[in-house]
Nucleic acid binder design. Structure first.
Lengths: 154, 154
DNA sequence: GTTGAAACAATGTGGCG
DNA sequence: CGCCACATTGTTTCAAC
């Protein structure tokens, strides 16, 4: 668990904005030889600073004509209940991502579904049917935008 | 705007789960020659089915010790007001992603900040100070999990 | 961290089903 | 017309410095 120097940050910032940058170009941008640069990138992966790279796809083209944010409140908040809910929902086809939150709701589920009926069935079959679920609220998602800048602090 | 065949779906599903898969291995998995496979992937990019690939980094290691979901309600909902808010907030360091939603709230902002004071200042300076903002609610985000399965429908 | 060479993968062209 | 095999180009990777 080493600290990150300015070169590491420069590499992360560049890759965050342009994840497909090849190693040679990246090395130029951060002022390193290709091999040194490559080693740093590998290290950032190994140390878990770069967790993964994710594909961003057009949900519409995959038949996901509706996206929604489903807010879920549980009635029990022990570790097993919370972890079990998260684990089970993460592997459903509909769920894109899960935010585990504090405050009024315990989870925000970003889902992609083909139509309104499917959304209703998903909420009934995968959420409200679970005994630990206390409250569910669903909001339509028009659009998701992802920042292209690394949220980094000194 | 062509339809996707089963091979396209197989490629997308494989890349969604393992985005770093090289073309040769991908071709094997979907039963195509490397060059044909490569052409398909290129086409999926060009047609906008694959929008981009994003880096997933450890916020903690970047000094983002607190993540939060900030729900924002506007007082005006004309296109310019909504687009302006989204555009301005997307380029702040703190914001990781923005969900434009229907229902009670207009936006959900996923933010990463170094500490609670910074979060408070961000909300004051970038959000409540804007005249079109009507209501703000902030919830702590403990954890974000992203699905490794493509949300695809026939 | 750098350099340079070997191994490898990505891309373009031409031929086959 | 889409798929495959080969050749070219370029990138990754590993040695020695």
């Amino acid at each position: 668990m080493r600290g990150l120097d300015t070169t590491d940050i420069a590499i992360l910032a560049a890759l965050y904005t342009q994840p497909d940058l090849n190693n040679k170009t990246l090395a130029e941008q951060v002022g390193l030889a290709p091999s040194s640069c490559h080693e740093r990138v590998k290290r950032l992966h190994n140390e878990g600073v770069i967790i993964s790279t994710q594909l961003h796809v057009d949900m519409e083209r995959l038949g996901g004509h509706i996206q929604a944010m489903v807010a879920v409140r549980l009635s029990a908040h022990d570790r097993n209940t919370v972890a079990g809910f998260q684990r089970d929902l993460l592997v459903t086809t509909e769920v894109v991502s899960i935010y585990h939150t504090g405050g009024e709701n315990d989870f925000l589920l970003h889902v992609s579904v083909p139509n309104a009926l499917h959304l209703r069935d998903f909420v009934f079959d995968q959420i409200t049917s679970r005994q630990e679920v206390n409250h569910v609220e669903t909001a339509l998602v028009y659009d998701v935008k992802v920042s292209q800048q690394l949220p980094v602090y000194p």
